[in-house]
């Protein structure tokens, strides 16, 4: 019997007991490895929120499932704007992002980075760069903004590729002097592409205007608050009466 067993073991390489033991061992180890890998992946996903992605990037979760981390977009970018993330570098390792304060997106008309993307994590249906939504500029620190102090800095407004559309200067009476106007840079989030030229150009030591990913920059009204989507004021709405 033992001889038959050993012969079986020799011909087939392993016997049933070995097979079961190896399978069990390997499954346990792979389970642990899987948990470890998933932890690493989800942990570094938490570093993502402030990473500004290239134009046409899918929503962050879809982007991470699609991006193959080949760097073709980075090599296609003529302005060296895009970088591949290092380990724990503010974005998932190997994925493309840019830091607007260093080099903003120059918004090329032919969008070479999107054309180069083989995985479709940069959406090829983006045809006009003005429709890009890399993020949204937010004037995050009014206190230190020179225009809010009554000066005419206007740099963010002047460098905006969509001047007077994405950033407008809203006039407001300067209460401090009593007889001047303040020209307040005001961003239209529906038009702003998030190119980051304003953040790049902001003259203060730390930029007071920053590009944030849309999911951080924007709030969201409840679905039943339909009046918020109209151009009318609440009073006009109410005077009109409800259409049921």
């Amino acid at each position: 019997m033992s001889k038959a067993n050993s012969k079986f073991a020799r011909v087939n390489g392993i016997n049933r007991r070995q097979f079961l033991a190896t399978t069990a061992k390997a499954s346990c180890v792979m389970g642990m490895a899987g948990l470890g890998l998933t932890t690493v992946a989800t942990q570094s996903r938490q570093l993502d929120p402030f990473a500004i992605r290239p134009p046409g990037a899918l929503a962050e979760d879809d982007f991470l499932s699609a991006c193959i981390r080949c760097g073709l977009c980075v090599e296609a970018c003529p302005y060296d704007t895009l970088k591949l993330a290092h380990w724990f570098d503010g974005a998932a390792t190997g994925t493309p992002y840019f830091t607007a304060r260093n080099i903003p997106c120059e918004m090329c008309d032919d969008i070479p980075c999107v054309k180069a993307c083989p995985s479709g994590s940069l959406d090829h249906s983006l045809e006009h760069i003005d429709d890009a939504k890399m993020g949204i500029a937010v004037l995050i620190d009014e206190k230190n903004c020179l225009n809010y102090r009554g000066l005419r800095c206007d740099v963010c407004y002047r460098v905006c590729p969509l001047i007077d559309k994405a950033i407008k200067l809203e006039l407001q009476r300067n209460e401090k002097s009593g007889h001047h106007a303040m020209f307040l840079p005001t961003i239209n989030p529906e038009i702003c592409t998030g190119c980051g030229k304003c953040e790049h150009a902001c003259v203060t030591e730390q930029a007071v205007i920053k590009v944030l990913p849309s999911h951080i920059a924007l709030g969201k009204s409840a679905a039943h608050d339909t009046y918020q989507h109209t151009e009318e004021t609440t009073l006009e709405m109410l005077n009109k009466g409800l259409t049921l």
Binding site: L37, T38, A41, T42, D61
Partner: peptide
Amino acid sequence: ILTGLAVWEWV
């Protein structure tokens, strides 16, 4: 399939 992420490409 489980995570929706190309997990291996992290490492």
